[in-house]
Amino acid sequence: MKVFRKIVDLQNELFEARKKKQSIGLVPTMGALHEGHASLVRRSVKENDITVVSVFLNPTQFNNPNDLATYPRTLEKDCDLLEKNGADYVFAPTAEEMYPTPDKRQFEFPPVSTVMEGKHRPGHFNGVCQVVSRLFYITRPQRAYFGEKDWQQIAVVKAMVKRLKLNIDIVECPIIRESDGLALSSRNTLLAPEERAIAPNIFKYLNESIEFAKTHSLKDTHNQVVSQINATDGLEVEYFSIVDGNTLQDIEKWEDSNYIVGCITVYCGKKPVRLIDHIKYKEY
């Protein structure tokens, strides 16, 4: 496995791969890798000749400076994980390498980019699109792999790919969870032991709400989940939105859509750590 810091060096390597008609898979990450990322890498290795993993903590998608400052950075450990899972190339640039001049491009894809995370983290998805589009132009992959934990992000990236007319398949990969149900996240490493102990309640109550929803209204289900999580000392819901899975718009009744997803963001602990998750109530 090779590690590249410079765009030109990676592009030269990938030019040789394309000359050999080798397919390229890209796994974009911000580092602090875990088994969820490893599952994306293994999927890419299985489906492509070459797998590139970017490890770049993108400053333009953080609207909270403290969130950026506290985000875990573990490049050496990340490279060990990537090599064990078959990655061919790691691209770990500096911010100056990725943004030699300020990226002033504006990306907006309403309604999918303006609700939930888009509403609560202004500028976040613009930063996501800035960095992901740059990674796409740099690596020119046939496929790019994203975890479903960041479910709204996938919808935004798909909208961007369509708008920019990029010939790239966006491959959605299932959430990987701990044995107690907590969705794997780089931010989990920021949880103190007592916070880690209560965090699985997020998925516990989401999961239980599937059965609850069979005999209760959408509004009652929403309120049940929020009240149960908020009743857990150390957890506080920022938002819980039950939406149409295609438009990401709030719905009022279960009959309003055949594809319904509940998306939640919860603050955990005293600092606190911001955790996201979702549950699918109805699928086609």
Score class of each variant (00 low, 15 high):
112 V>R: 01
129 C>F: 01
230 N>A: 01
155 A>L: 01
163 R>F: 14
198 I>F: 04
226 V>F: 02
284 Y>H: 08
108 E>K: 15
123 G>R: 11
136 F>P: 05
269 G>D: 10
282 K>H: 05
269 G>V: 10
204 K>Q: 12
190 L>N: 06
43 R>K: 14
250 D>G: 14
154 I>E: 00
213 A>H: 03
53 V>P: 04
68 L>H: 13
229 I>G: 01
282 K>T: 00
205 Y>A: 03
27 V>T: 07
258 N>H: 06
68 L>V: 05
104 K>S: 13
66 N>H: 13
2 K>N: 12
276 I>P: 01
282 K>I: 01
23 S>G: 05
85 N>H: 08
75 L>N: 12
276 I>Y: 07
185 S>N: 10
116 M>W: 02
144 A>N: 02
185 S>L: 08
89 Y>R: 12
35 E>N: 15
7 I>T: 13
37 H>P: 10
159 A>E: 14
241 S>M: 14
201 N>C: 09
44 S>W: 11
196 R>E: 12
114 T>W: 01
94 T>S: 10
46 K>D: 09
267 Y>R: 12
202 I>C: 05
61 Q>L: 13
189 T>M: 10
41 V>A: 06
172 E>Y: 04
162 K>P: 07
32 A>G: 14
4 F>R: 04
88 D>S: 09
41 V>Y: 03
7 I>C: 01
254 W>D: 00
135 L>D: 02
241 S>N: 13
182 L>K: 06
123 G>K: 09
271 K>Q: 11
52 V>D: 06
251 I>E: 03
245 G>L: 01
17 A>H: 12
213 A>I: 03
101 T>Y: 00
10 L>M: 06
222 H>E: 08
242 I>W: 04
245 G>I: 00
174 P>Q: 04
171 V>M: 13
86 G>E: 05
192 A>G: 15
1 M>G: 10
58 N>T: 04
246 N>V: 05
263 C>A: 12
182 L>R: 08
199 A>P: 06
140 R>Q: 09
171 V>D: 02
92 A>N: 14
106 Q>F: 09
209 S>P: 05
94 T>H: 00
202 I>Q: 02
77 K>R: 15
51 T>R: 07
251 I>V: 04
187 R>A: 12
265 T>M: 14
270 K>E: 12
44 S>K: 04
212 F>E: 09
195 E>K: 15
165 K>F: 11
95 A>F: 01
149 K>H: 02
64 N>Q: 10
236 E>G: 06
124 H>M: 13
104 K>C: 12
227 S>K: 07
49 D>M: 01
254 W>L: 04
36 G>Y: 03
221 T>N: 02
234 G>T: 11
19 K>W: 07
277 D>P: 03
50 I>T: 15
122 P>S: 10
212 F>H: 15
186 S>E: 11
284 Y>V: 07
88 D>P: 08
272 P>M: 08
27 V>L: 05
271 K>T: 13
186 S>F: 11
25 G>N: 07
247 T>E: 00
50 I>V: 10
239 Y>Q: 04
133 S>A: 15
74 T>E: 11
178 E>S: 09
151 W>S: 08
146 F>D: 02
33 L>R: 04
210 I>S: 09
74 T>R: 14
64 N>H: 13
232 T>D: 06
105 R>I: 03
50 I>D: 06
